[in-house]
Simulated scan of single mutants.
Amino acid sequence: MLRPFLHYGAHFLLPLAIAILFYKPKYLKVYLIFLCGFLIDLDHLWSTPIFHPNRCSINFHFLHSYYAIIVYLLLVVPKITRLLGIGLICHIIADSLDCFMMGI
């Protein structure tokens, strides 16, 4: 019961905390951009089954691969893509936390 709470809490609260701490004047807009990081979960549609509660997403789905993670890290460098990159990295951190809690 604790694992889904921490996993989904990290998906929503980590980006919110970063938005409030570092982008206070426009935190709501920044938070919404961070939440666009959820779009990488579209790669679950190519899996069978689409959702499996005990599957680690990291390096299983193609948008959660190590190569994709390198691209997400590089997106943080240019100012124009920084917010999207941070949102994607927050998503990967939340999924990594889930994998860690599964013992993988």
Rank of each mutant, 00 (worst) to 15 (best):
R3F: 01
R3S: 00
L6I: 06
L6G: 02
H7V: 02
H7Y: 04
Y8D: 05
G9A: 01
G9S: 02
A10T: 05
A10L: 04
A10K: 00
H11E: 08
F12Q: 07
L14G: 04
L14T: 09
L16G: 02
A17D: 09
A17Y: 13
A17G: 13
I18M: 05
I20C: 14
L21M: 13
Y23F: 13
Y23N: 05
K24S: 12
K24Y: 15
P25V: 07
K26L: 01
L28W: 14
V30G: 01
V30I: 14
Y31K: 04
L32S: 08
I33W: 11
I33P: 02
F34C: 10
F34W: 10
L35P: 00
L35Y: 00
L35N: 02
C36D: 09
G37K: 10
G37R: 06
G37C: 13
L39P: 06
D41N: 15
D41R: 11
D43T: 09
H44D: 06
L45P: 04
S47L: 14
T48W: 02
T48N: 06
P49F: 05
I50C: 13
I50F: 15
I50S: 13
F51S: 06
H52W: 08
H52F: 12
R55G: 04
C56M: 02
S57P: 05
I58T: 12
I58R: 08
N59G: 08
F60H: 15
F60C: 11
F60D: 14
H61A: 09
H61C: 11
H61Y: 13
H61K: 10
L63N: 06
H64E: 09
H64R: 07
H64M: 10
Y66L: 10
Y66A: 08
Y66H: 10
Y67T: 14
Y67P: 08
A68H: 11
A68M: 15
I69T: 14
I69Q: 12
V71A: 12
Y72H: 04
Y72F: 12
L74G: 08
L74C: 13
L75G: 04
V76L: 11
V76E: 02
V76M: 09
V77M: 07
V77E: 03
V77D: 02
K79I: 11
R82N: 07
R82F: 02
L83A: 00
L84K: 06
G85H: 02
G85T: 04
G85F: 01
I86T: 02
I86H: 01
G87N: 12
G87S: 13
G87K: 10
L88D: 04
I89W: 13
C90L: 09
H91G: 07
H91R: 05
I92M: 12
I92V: 14
I92G: 01
I93F: 11
A94T: 00
D95P: 07
D95Y: 09
S96L: 09
D98I: 03
D98T: 08
C99A: 09
C99S: 06
M102C: 03
M102L: 14
M102T: 04
I104G: 14
